[in-house]
Amino acid sequence: MSKVEQKKEGGMDRRSFFRAGSGAAVAAATVVATGAEPAAAAESASERTKARYKETEHVKTFYRVNRY
């Protein structure tokens, strides 16, 4: 079963699921960084691997409390 078929079936990939489903994933800063994007848009392979880093408030807080 390919990734594309999977999305057709359920409408969500792993990343979107975490974003929508739970605060449990917030700790990983990169996941948080995508938090403002629409949930269910299908992604091409290149979109999926593009750089997603954004300096959100969460990320800035992480840097501050860890003295980076």
Partner: peptide, 24 residues
């Protein structure tokens, strides 16, 4: 219902591993 990063803990300062992120 939700889990926030523990930025205040001097031990993990907002981080979790896979296990800590899924304790809920």
């Amino acid at each position: 219902v939700g889990q926030e990063p523990a930025y205040d803990s001097p031990i993990n300062r907002g981080s979790h591993c896979a296990k800590g992120a899924s304790v809920r």
